[in-house]
Design a protein around this nucleic acid. Structure first.
Lengths: 118, 118
DNA sequence: CAGCATCCCGTGTGATACTG
DNA sequence: CAGTATCACACGGGATGCTG
């Protein structure tokens, strides 16, 4: 088992302790849309409307919430172009790109084991 | 980008479509405790009480809910030993073990990038 | 010991309509 | 186009007490 929290954890089983900061990250990523939104941005900047099209079924409000949370945590950038019509592009930060790797791993696993899941 | 859903998806951006079955798995894993519970079982069978100790802060009810969901989805086994006192052991199935790999990847990433996250 | 029963609450999610 | 406003709701999660 890999020790998650290097700080103040001596018993390896305490890595799941309430105080473990990895909780925050898991909580952030562990919602219905965040992981998918990051995946949808892997190829480069995407506009709001296009994001909504890719994340089929998401409402504008929920998309906004998701993006704001990811932005506040430093995973994505929000660039506003004062054009007509208005253009807003979302893109992954370096941090966002780096987390997309393990997330891809998870999605690949899903693809590979889909048939085994009830 | 890796195509997640091999079935009926031809536009690579539609992998995030509402019908994508990977949603179910993400929904299952994407709650507060499931990923951590799987991690807590990586080393072998664990009893209910020990699980509650490792997942510090979880209540019995929530732990039961989490375990039931994971059991129903085929990620863990529940073994009952009719002893006195009663003993119930939880362990990962093969499927559970296989998913713990990508989950470890995610947790490792958290460990490595913790300092970069606000 | 390993849970179930019960009550409660916050919030994530959703549908729809509206605006700068 | 890119959101915001509003209302509504199910569900995850928590606290406490009780049971086979």
């Amino acid at each position: 088992m890999t020790v998650i929290c290097s700080t103040g954890v001596h018993d390896k089983h305490d890595v799941y302790a309430l105080q473990c900061p990895c909780r925050d990250v898991l909580d952030l990523l562990a919602n219905k849309w965040a992981a998918l939104a990051i995946g949808a941005l892997e190829d480069g900047p995407v506009r709001f409307g296009e994001l909504q099209r890719r994340l089929q079924g998401i409402s504008p409000k929920v998309l906004t919430n998701t993006l704001r949370r990811l932005e506040d945590s430093g995973f994505i950038n929000r660039e506003i172009y004062a054009e007509v019509p208005l253009r807003v592009e979302y893109s992954l930060t370096d941090l966002g790109h780096s987390v997309s790797a393990p997330l891809s791993g998870l999605r690949s696993w899903v693809e590979a084991h889909l048939h085994e899941i009830s």
